[in-house]
Each structure stands twice: as structure tokens, then as C-alpha cells.
């Protein structure tokens, strides 16, 4: 009977946390900024190259970064309020709350998918000229970044329960992205999350100038493996089944390595 209660509490908790995450001011602001950026690009800076970039990597920046901070704040809310001891008396364990937080990251991911689809429809209706339409894998990159941001936010809240730690994680991510972004010629930029698939060319960077080398399908698998790794990392913190989550984490590391190499030209 106890087991039944525990099993059924996770989806209900996940729905509640997803609702909380989706209503978080940072998440709302992130998606609003993405819409604003799309409108501004449409009005002031339109061309095949910016249009392609907006579809493939715009979500890594605008909804992605705020979703990371929102997920971290939501997952750490009980600790920051000093309520962890009170929650300890409830039937749902800390592991189940972490699992629910991880599942809640699917909320912003689904919204990101919907926004991406709406943008695609908008492109089709407006007849936006692109050098070529992005593949399904390329369209998935933005929502996958949003999913990874949510899961990494939960992992950050569980493993680094100190003020300012989430900022440090974000700064480290930005640094890593800046480092790898200079390697477009070798495909090294695909190790980043904000990967530029189209060549920018000369100022004003609007013309279609071809694409940077690399396999974007493998890049989507690479991002998905990173997402799963972040989820396994979050679960590893409190779960009594540490070996299981260590094994899952090891598998995702292998998947990241294989996909990381596979995406190179």
C-alpha cells in the first residue's frame, strides 16, 4: 500500500511543480523575450541567416537562461525557506520531489516545442526566405536546450546548495560556450549549447553564406544525452539507489562522448 502511494505521488507532484515552473516570472519573461527578439528580428534585421539562427539557437539564450534560474529557484525553494525538515515528514521523499522537479522540466520543454512550431508556421505563412528549411533535428535544438536548462537547474539546486552557486554554473556554461564557439571550421562549436549552424559571412550578416561543418543530427543526440546526464546527476544526490543512477550517468557520459565525436565533420 505504501509503495502505491509513493508511486502515484510523483506524477501529481510533477504536475504541480511544472505548473509552478511555468508560472514563474523568469520563465514567463524568458519566453516573452524570445517572442520580442523574434518580432525585432522580423522588423529590423531580417534575412536568411538571422531567420535560420533564430529557429535553431535562439531558444538557448532567451528562454534557456531564465528557465535554468527558475528551475534552480523552484527546486531550492523549500531549502531557502527553511522548510526541508517539515517536508521530511511527508509521505513523498526527497528523491521523489527531485524526480518530480526533473519531470517538471518537461513543462517549459513542451512550451518551447509549441513556440518553435508556431514560429515555423509563421515562417511558412510569411514566406520567409531561408537558404534551406531546418531539419527536425535542427528544430529540436532550441527546445532541447530549454529542457537541459531546467534539468541542470534542478541538479544545481541539489548539489550546490549555496548562494551564488547557480550564477557560477551559468558563468561556467557561458565561458565553455565562448571557448568552443571560435572553432566553427573544425566543428568544435557543436560542443557548445548555443551553436551557430549558419555561416555569418560579412556585415550585416544577413545573407545566406552556407553552413558550418558538422552533423546536426548527432548534435541533437549530444544535447539530449547532456539533458539525460543532468537528470541523472540531479537524481544521484538523494536517491537510495545510487548505483543505478551512477550507472545511468555513466551511460549518458558514453552517449555524450559518442554523439560528441559523431557530430564532428
Amino acid at each position: 500500500m505504501t509503495v502505491e502511494v509513493r508511486v502515484s505521488s510523483v506524477p501529481a507532484l510533477a504536475v504541480a511543480k511544472a505548473r509552478r515552473l511555468l508560472r514563474h516570472p523568469l520563465v514567463l519573461a524568458g519566453f516573452a523575450l524570445f517572442v520580442l527578439a523574434s518580432v525585432v528580428e522580423l522588423r529590423d534585421y531580417w534575412g536568411p541567416r538571422p531567420a535560420f539562427s533564430l529557429l535553431t539557437n535562439g531558444m538557448a539564450l532567451w528562454p534557456g537562461v531564465p528557465v535554468f534560474f527558475a528551475a534552480e529557484l523552484v527546486a531550492s525553494a523549500s531549502r531557502r525557506a527553511g522548510g526541508d525538515e517539515l517536508l521530511g515528514a511527508l509521505p513523498a521523499s526527497r528523491t521523489q520531489r527531485t524526480a518530480a522537479s526533473c519531470l517538471a522540466a518537461l513543462g517549459p520543454f513542451l512550451v518551447a516545442c509549441a513556440v518553435q512550431m508556431a514560429l515555423c508556421v509563421g515562417y511558412a505563412v510569411q514566406g520567409v526566405s531561408l537558404e534551406r528549411f531546418p531539419t527536425v533535428f535542427e528544430l529540436a535544438l532550441g527546445p532541447l536546450c530549454v529542457l537541459g536548462a531546467g534539468l541542470l537547474g534542478v541538479a544545481s539546486a541539489r548539489w550546490l546548495p549555496w548562494a551564488g552557486a547557480s550564477v557560477l554554473v551559468m558563468v561556467a556554461l557561458v565561458f565553455f560556450n565562448v571557448v568552443v564557439n571560435g572553432n566553427e571550421a573544425t566543428g568544435g562549436h557543436l560542443f557548445g549549447f548555443y551553436a551557430e549552424l549558419a555561416v555569418w559571412g560579412p556585415w550585416p550578416y544577413r545573407a545566406a553564406m552556407g553552413f558550418n561543418p558538422g552533423h546536426t543530427g548527432w548534435h541533437a543526440v549530444y544535447l539530449l544525452a547532456l539533458c539525460l546526464g543532468a537528470g541523472a546527476l540531479a537524481m544521484l544526490r538523494d536517491s537510495p539507489r545510487r548505483r543505478f543512477w551512477l550507472g545511468a550517468g555513466a551511460l549518458t557520459v558514453i552517449a555524450v562522448a559518442v554523439a560528441g565525436l559523431g557530430q564532428l565533420p
Partner: peptide
């Protein structure tokens, strides 16, 4: 991020 997204 809003400053980056702001119109010209």
C-alpha cells in the same frame, strides 16, 4: 537579456 533583445 532584455537589453540584448531590445529593438534598435
Amino acid at each position: 537579456l532584455a537589453a540584448l533583445a531590445a529593438p534598435g
